[in-house]
Nucleic acid binder design. Sequence first.
DNA 1: CCAAAAGTGTTATGTATACACCCATGG
DNA 2: CCATGGGTGTATACATAACACTTTTGG
Lengths: 224, 224
Amino acid sequence: MNQSIKLSVDAVVFGYEAGTISVLLIKRKYEPFKGKWAIPGGFVLNNEALEKAVERELKEETGVEINYLEQLYSFGNPNRDPRGRIVSIAYFGLVHPSAFKINASTDAEEVQWFKIDELPQLSFDHKDILKLAISRLQSKITYEPLGFELLDEKFPFSDLENLYTTLLGRPIDRRNFRKKFLKLNILDELDEKISKGSGRPANLFKFNQKRYFKLKQEGIIFDI
Amino acid sequence: MNQSIKLSVDAVVFGYEAGTISVLLIKRKYEPFKGKWAIPGGFVLNNEALEKAVERELKEETGVEINYLEQLYSFGNPNRDPRGRIVSIAYFGLVHPSAFKINASTDAEEVQWFKIDELPQLSFDHKDILKLAISRLQSKITYEPLGFELLDEKFPFSDLENLYTTLLGRPIDRRNFRKKFLKLNILDELDEKISKGSGRPANLFKFNQKRYFKLKQEGIIFDI
DNA sequence: CCAAAAGTGTTATGTATACACCCATGG
DNA sequence: CCATGGGTGTATACATAACACTTTTGG
């Protein structure tokens, strides 16, 4: 056996802030696709676990600390990379809004958040990867009470509402949504309010981690 | 970069016949795990697409013609294979009962169908792979009108019923199940009957491929 | 005529949906 | 006092779940 396939990992990282979903991209420094945007990632080291490789590459290339990571899909088309046969295991990650800070602290020509409906041209087959990741995110949200992984610790209910309307791309009934989500019994209402300048101040909520993860394990179907 | 990772594919193939779900395993000829049972699979060739590699290995090792194939998950734990770093992309396959014939035509010490509740000890991390595949099958059946991929062209309704009760591991209400499934409008009732020796002969059905695949694409939630 | 599997409807209960007004604050 | 976003209840339609007897064949 004389195999010369190389193995890489890529990570599609989503963040949510102020009513928009963004994805983290880097601008490539070297050929091929020099100067083009790409999903962060790189080669797996010989004795490195796959998830560790993802975390390492993300940190090296973007400085982002990932909050949630799961495997997405493996891409192995023989022609996907002009450098040779490179199979990539793609991951799917979510971060809290606080991780958005990289945008300021890093050279904007190198790392940037892009709104998912304003994407630039991408390198390799990264368009396919991103497309799959977006559809995974959209379907995931309909059967899991997603939110904990994307919102900050404390948040007004309207943030959650916005997250869902944004991801689903359609309006949802505020009353029904609130009823349904609260009935899951994974949110704790705090004795704290936040004011957004105008309008009635909103109560803050936080996820009850114990009950949240218990519910996820049970594989709840959250038919929004 | 001096990567020495090798890439393999493995395929968990399920078949359904006479009220039981079985999985296709091979007995290993060589070390490591010589003489132990394992999921069929092998190394990917340099210019070979991943799915092609799966199909080739399956044919070489078991003679089975696969009917449905999808990617399951990639396993990359650095210690999963004693021969070195081998990352495996696992696939999930379904075959028609007619493919069960391999059992007779091939050396039984080499390839065999095992009922999923009577599994032998497995090599490598194949127990984990199989476990994941089984849970995928079980969850898939609850949101997709699975059946076409596992049953023969014409079948009595009771076969479908049995498939579901077997996979779900619990009884289902025959009347409700039939109503719900027929309402999907993907089964065509034939003017043919089959008799199983005793009892009233059953009408045969077949899947209407067009409507079936259309429904699958729409991602139907089939809340059995 | 008996055993065995196939086939068939109705009712009750729960869940999803549609819908509009009052509340609390800042300016 | 006005503009802005936050917070709340009810009635209807639909879907699920529970439940048992009749039909057709082979032996």
